[in-house]
Amino acid sequence: MNTPFRLDEHKRRPQPLAPPPADYFERLPRQLMARVQPAAGRSEAAFGWLAALSMPLRTALASVVVLGGFATSFLLSQSAVTSVTPAATVASLEAVPRTEMMQYLLASDSRVTLTDLAELSTADHSLTDSFLQASPDELQDALDAQPTDDTYL
């Protein structure tokens, strides 16, 4: 009768499988260096100077870059806002003839209506007398013609 197999009585073979090719462990370090070297070369070419810096310096440099980015974007947005001043807006509007402006405003109901002009002229005639040539009766007729539902009576 066979003796039962017991692992602790079995002579252990540290490497039971067939060994790798004879020069395998000589070639492996070279193959590995070839695999990691191209990546290392590329990164060193682009960021070699950065890698040479110490960690605190790299952190400081990154902070400066981020803060610089914020400052630049802030300055650019400020100059865009300040480039159009209220005085410049008034000057450019004054250059437009008033009759042309009135035609533009009346071209669409969403901007201004004849009723708006009539109300404005009735309230203060001096505001409209330079561009609105209408008699008080004509203005009153325009106001009377206003639809009832628009007056909220």
């Binding site: 039971p16 395998y24 590995l32 260096m33 070297q37």
Partner: peptide
């Protein structure tokens, strides 16, 4: 760095290879 990595590979390659191979 390269020298250090080469030394590391030579030190552990056999153990790691056999661990994986089994």
């Amino acid at each position: 760095r390269n020298v250090a990595f080469n030394q590391l590979v030579r030190k552990y390659q056999s153990k790691i290879y056999w661990h994986v191979r089994k």
